[in-house]
Design a protein around this nucleic acid. Structure first.
Lengths: 252, 252
DNA sequence: AGAAAAATGTTCGTTTTTGTGCGTTTTCGA
DNA sequence: TCGAAAACGCACAAAAACGAACATTTTTCT
């Protein structure tokens, strides 16, 4: 029995039993433990199993781990922005949360709100908010974008058009000093534009790393946004623009 | 993260029994109580259990117990059914995967297919398949059902209507001996019905625990299904029905 | 067939885990 | 409230598992 034939069977056994032991597999395949160790090491490197002393187990709930890792990755600024943003959202209203790590931070802060109807095109946000039993979560359809768990495309836009939101929280990839809000993904821009149309009050949540960056697609102007929540002071030009446009700026 | 083969099983036992004792586990694993204490201390440090004198209990915040229990129920059969089912699905085609732990097992077996377009209303399946870069995943919209990660309601049905599928894999809650396919949730029945309409070939994946059970809502008849993949022989009556209707039955 | 490559087995020093002994803390009944 | 029994955690030694390096076998390609 060659190595290529062993690996799939190891996975299958692991799925069936929930765990595998080095010795058990060695006996099952009639090879030395060392060979099994090599197999397990490779499977673990591929992320198909999780190595433990004496054997291996199934990767424990991929979703939860992704979530907790992400949470650890959360920079202080994003948590602060999320917290500040959540304070502007009352109980018992309808909210849209867009794609983005910053909006995920907002979702985490909404865990103790009540009576919310949250619509999102971010599968991670859906997972986070599913922990709060006082929130109804609606997920838009769309193509799953692996990189960030976003749901994009025509389906997403279609779904959003069927709602009216009291509040919407959007993120962005870049923010020009003249008040233009930009994004890397053209498809997502369509979604963001629709959200702005359908919402009573729009919040932009973006940390200072976005200031003065460049991105190809235009979402909107700062004038289309009601509140901008960030962590550091804006450039003079941008502050002036917001003032004229009536956009309230908040520092977390 | 777990460094011991024992830990996942301890969690599993804790979920099933609600609590675990040091002595009980020591006997179960044939190790000394001290070793178990170490395990429990570490699990408690990770927040996965709550330590009490003489053993440990589930942390009060733990949710979704029903779902994880159900997922572990009959696990071996589900993996086998998933594997058998995946063999009927070729590369480069469009597939719908419905809600259900058995269909999740199918998704896990599709990880090495190529060129698939998979549409699903199950957020867990979306997460599983996002690991396969050769599969395009589309998620239907809908209300997020906390209990099992399903997306249900009108939005889901609407989305599904926009597609035509080469193959669809559906699950069910119960299966009557006269060939009627049943489900607990009326909303989900609507979704399943739509899927059957939109699909070239329909697979029903259900393990033997569903045989002869009862559920209130009718999805369809076995005659509407092209293949039925299960783990144990059907009742004589049901087998006869399938034969007449031309439904092929496969045992994993 | 013969050489190169891949996979497997073997050996050995290192790391991790487990068992044991013992003093301390908690629980529970009188 | 007090005292015994059980449970606990710590420290150290023994045992098991580990990985790296090298020898040997098997497979593959020319």
């Amino acid at each position: 029995m060659s190595q290529t034939l062993r690996k799939p069977e190891i996975i299958q056994i692991a799925r069936r039993e929930g765990k595998v032991t080095v010795d058990g597999l060695a006996e099952h395949f009639s090879v030395t433990p060392q060979t099994i160790r090599r197999d397990l090491t490779e499977l673990a490197d591929d992320g198909r199993l999780e190595r433990v002393h004496g054997g291996a187990v199934l990767p424990s709930t991929t979703t939860n781990i992704g979530y907790s890792e992400r949470r650890e990755l959360n920079q202080a600024a994003k948590v602060d922005i999320g917290s500040a943003c959540a304070k502007f959202i009352p109980n018992d209203c309808s909210v849209f949360l867009n794609i983005g790590t910053t909006t995920e931070a907002v979702a985490a802060e909404l865990l103790h709100h009540e009576g919310l109807l949250v619509v999102t095109n971010n599968i991670n946000i859906a997972m986070i908010l599913s922990q709060n039993h006082n929130v109804e979560v609606i997920v838009t359809g769309g193509h799953l974008r692996r990189s960030d768990g976003g749901l994009v495309g025509d389906l997403a836009t279609q779904t959003i058009r069927q709602f009216r939101f009291d509040y919407a929280v959007i993120g962005c990839s870049a923010l020009r000093h003249d008040g233009e809000i930009l994004d890397f993904d053209v498809q997502e821009v369509g979604v963001s534009k629709t959200i702005i149309q359908q919402s009573q009050e729009v919040f932009l949540a973006a940390d200072s790393s976005k200031f003065g960056r460049k991105a190809p697609a235009r979402i909107a102007s700062m004038a289309d946004v009601d509140r901008f929540i960030t962590d550091r002071p804006l450039s003079a030009q941008c502050r002036l623009f917001c003032e004229k446009a009536g956009t309230k700026v908040h520092y977390a």
